[in-house]
């Protein structure tokens, strides 16, 4: 497990990280979200040792992370970076060897990843002769070539078409379920919601929400009840303890407190319900609530805390 404990970093007047605390568990996908400039990239760089925190600890498997530990991390920076005129396979072998693989092992792993990512026929092409999407795949292969224990990806989905996004999602899932910890940032909350088991929300250098994504949603104080009836939707508009959010023809969306039992609430509604949904708020709502708060404080969610 990777832990950041009270990590702070200041660049002159800018406080990039202010006591940032969260964790990345092995075998799980952790989504890392926050507004631009919230500190995501700085936090990731602190994990990789590219930034030395002014305060706080980065711990790996219970001890302060060492350069040797970091050699078992894989990293894909937001700004993609590879040598444009170097051949794809040579590039991956080079990076694999720098991560500690022997020349033979690096060649074997690089070839294996190129196969897995559908780039086997481009192995001897120069990087800048590849399409944008294929260059992204090579970048991912560069992060994976040494089979890292922890994978840190800064915006892996940016610039991908829908098919490539699906492929990337599947791949990240496979890697996490193979036992590695995966931390990735994204502005696409729907991807995080569908893909991730864990969530970290950061704002102004502070973690404002973190934990198991389902638990976070379950812990939200409100629920949404969406009901479509065959006729007379008006009877749904004046229920006690429920606020109407949407009224669209025969469909009504209500917000209720978590403590309100939907079965009791709907007891007198009658037998013409066509559709019914009862769900916690979507990630986007939780995110907006978390980053809009005037005084951000970390909320630990029970069942997920250390």
């Amino acid at each position: 497990m990777l832990e950041l404990i009270g990590v702070s970093k200041r660049y002159g007047e800018v406080e990039a990280l202010a006591g940032c605390t969260f964790q990345v568990r092995p075998g799980r996908l952790t989504g890392f979200v926050g507004p631009n400039g919230a500190g995501k990239t700085t936090a990731m760089r602190a994990v990789l040792g590219l930034v030395t925190p002014d305060e706080g600890d980065v711990r790996w498997r219970g001890h302060p992370v060492t350069p040797t530990d970091r050699r078992r991390f894989g990293y894909m920076p937001e700004e993609r970076g590879l040598y444009p005129r170097m051949r794809v396979l040579d590039q991956l072998v080079f990076l694999g060897r720098l991560s500690g693989l022997s020349a033979a092992a690096a060649a074997r792993e690089a070839t294996r990843w190129l196969d897995a990512l559908g780039l086997a026929d481009r192995a001897s092409s120069r990087l800048d002769d590849l399409s944008h999407g294929n260059q992204q795949r090579v970048q991912l292969a560069a992060a994976l070539v040494h089979a890292p224990d922890l994978l840190v990806l800064d915006e892996p989905f940016s610039g991908l078409d829908p098919l490539a996004m699906d492929a990337m999602s599947g791949l990240l899932g496979d890697i996490a379920h193979g036992g590695a910890g995966v931390l990735f940032s994204s502005h696409q909350l729907d991807i995080i919601e569908h893909l991730c088991e864990d969530l970290v929300v950061i704002d102004s250098g502070r973690v404002v929400l973190t934990g198991d994504l389902d638990a976070i949603r379950d812990a939200a104080p409100v629920r949404y009840l969406e009901i479509t009836v065959a006729r007379d939707p008006e009877r749904l508009l004046h229920l006690t303890d429920a606020t109407v959010v949407v009224h669209d023809g025969n469909r009504v969306r209500l917000r209720v407190a978590r403590t309100v039992d939907p079965v009791t609430l709907l007891a007198g509604v009658g037998g013409d319900v066509v559709r019914l949904a009862y769900e916690p708020p979507a990630l986007s709502e939780l995110f907006h609530a978390a980053v809009a708060g005037p005084v951000p404080t970390t909320r630990e969610v029970s069942g997920v805390a250390r």
Binding site: L48, L50, Y75, L82, Y83, L98
Partner: peptide, 12 residues
Amino acid sequence: NRVAEVLLARMP
């Protein structure tokens, strides 16, 4: 090219 960051993640 931003290769520097990829390298720095691997070596001093």
